[in-house]
């Protein structure tokens, strides 16, 4: 059946099988190959794109479900068309070394774009939880989290600085300090 989907601001259309996954539509019909498929179980998020502005996993959407809607992939971000990562998120991934092999990157970037658009007061914990739907096997997430904080206009070192200045027991930012320990301190 015929579908029409706006992709990165351009109208696209094709006659497709209803079972065609949106990820394959983007890669094979439109020819945009940045969006990757990393799993079969809606787990890894490498295929994340924006659908009408919301981050979704394009491996778990049929192209026909996106009929008449608009999709944004990493290729649609600012600077992408001339090969310069000038969008705040891609620029921060570059500056903070937020990618290694690059396979998770297009999905991770689009999740970050969505996360930042939904919350103007991100901190490390929120970024980590906000990226729970995207797996990266290379970076250990450390620099991805930094990049997203930078892109959101936050100081990625803020929590480490606060911790260094504090006399309190040093623990990783955002993690439980232990309920009873807190009570004991209170």
């Amino acid at each position: 059946m015929k579908v029409q989907i706006s992709v990165n601001g351009e109208d696209t259309s094709a006659d497709v099988e209803p079972r065609l996954l949106l990820a394959h539509y983007l890669r094979e019909q439109v020819g945009l190959k940045a969006t990757n498929i990393g799993c079969d179980t809606t787990s890894c998020g490498a295929c994340t794109v924006l659908l009408d502005g919301e981050a979704v996993k394009s491996c778990t959407l049929l192209a026909v479900q996106a009929e008449g809607q608009s999709v944004t992939t990493m290729e649609g971000l600012e600077g992408a068309s001339d090969g310069t990562p000038t969008h705040p998120v891609t620029a921060a991934f570059h500056a903070e070394h937020g990618l290694q092999c690059g396979f998770c990157t297009p999905g991770m970037v689009m999740s970050a774009v969505s996360l930042i658009s939904h919350d103007d007061d991100l901190d490390e914990r929120k970024v980590r939880e906000g990226l729970e739907g995207n797996l990266c096997r290379c970076t250990g997430y450390h620099n991805i989290v930094r990049a997203v904080l930078v892109a959101a206009g936050k100081d990625p070192d803020a929590e480490q600085k606060a911790e260094a200045e504090s006399d309190a027991l040093r623990t990783a930012p955002g993690f439980s300090r232990g309920e009873s320990a807190e009570e004991a301190q209170a």
């Binding site: 809606t42 659908l51 981050a55 739907g133």
Partner: peptide, 9 residues
Amino acid sequence: VGDPQVRAR
């Protein structure tokens, strides 16, 4: 439930 992408759909 799931993750942000799952919750969006």
